[in-house]
């Protein structure tokens, strides 16, 4: 066998995925079990995202793949090449040009628009997993909307540290019903989940779960009245390349004498700003 089916997966598998995606969209924030397949990349490396993307792609799509916000990280390159090969779709690094964006750990800075699909790679889809390792228990908690344990844990953080000590994979409540893991995005990105015009799909391959946020869905980061959620990032820094003050910044160590700089984690956002500045200067 030398040739693979369009978008790699066989039709029966894609139908199964598509049915799961539709149920996920119909029940925002609920994790739909699906029978995940072995993919040609390892579990934990985006197999859930890849299966969701494969089930959604059409030949007319323009695909962007990012990891840590960057288009040129190794895993992003690998997944982008995979789909260019098995689905023949056009690829891009420009957020605004992409119809489907697969991401690991970030939401692009450029606001998403109607018609775009953002596919998240999810390692541990269960937001309650770190409080309770058993699937049988956490499933019951979701069924009964019994989220007391989560609130207790967050409040313990406040008692101990003076704030909720969670920097990423910060749990959210969807439409006032399901508590959902937004995947390990920094909490800086959480507000972008709320009321987004784009369709957001989440795929966890190893854990066999798909979940979704339809466009314009209410997504609230868990907090307390006296300890409201804040979307934090590197304090008092701007991007050393493009000067952005509003983007999420990576800290880069520049020498062995404590020197460091901060740059945009979203490479497309940064490059677009630099290009615009060059044009203005010319």
């Amino acid at each position: 066998m030398t040739d693979y089916n369009f978008a790699y997966l066989d039709e029966a598998t894609k139908r199964m995925l598509r049915r799961a995606i539709l149920k996920a969209v119909a029940i925002p924030g609920y994790q739909v079990p699906f029978s995940s397949r072995e993919m040609p990349m390892p579990y934990g490396w985006g197999t859930g995202g890849v299966q969701v993307t494969a089930a959604c792609l059409v030949p007319e799509d323009t695909l962007k793949v990012i990891d840590q916000g960057a288009d040129d990280t190794t895993n992003a390159v690998s997944i982008r090449k995979f789909f260019a090969r098995v689905a023949g779709v056009e690829t891009t690094e420009a957020t605004a040009r992409a119809s489907v964006i697969q991401t690991r750990h970030r939401i692009p800075e450029t606001p998403l628009t109607e018609g775009q699909i953002l596919v998240f790679q999810v390692p541990i889809p269960e937001p309650l997993r770190f409080l309770e390792p058993r699937e049988t228990e956490t499933r019951t908690m979701h069924a009964l909307e019994d989220y007391g344990l989560m609130h207790v844990r967050l409040y313990e953080d406040i008692a101990k540290h003076g704030e909720i000590a969670r920097a990423y994979a910060y749990p959210v409540r969807v439409e006032g019903r399901y508590i959902m893991d937004p995947s390990p995005i920094p909490k800086f990105d959480n507000p972008k989940l709320d009321n987004s015009p784009a369709l957001q799909l989440f795929g966890a391959g190893r854990e066999c779960r798909i979940y979704a946020l339809p466009p314009y869905t209410r997504v609230e980061s868990l907090d307390f009245e006296d300890y409201p959620f804040t979307a934090s990032k590197a304090a008092g820094q701007v991007c050393a390349i493009c000067g952005a003050e509003d983007s999420y910044l990576d800290e880069v160590i520049t020498d062995d004498a404590g020197g460091r700089m901060f740059v945009c984690s979203d490479t497309d956002y940064c490059a677009t700003r630099v290009a615009a500045q060059a044009e203005d200067a010319a």
Partner: peptide, 17 residues
């Protein structure tokens, strides 16, 4: 494979809106 992909995207678009 292609017809089903295009049809699904339309059904998904409808379900999401």
């Amino acid at each position: 494979p292609i017809d089903a992909a295009r049809a699904f995207r339309l059904v998904l678009d409808a379900m999401a809106h």
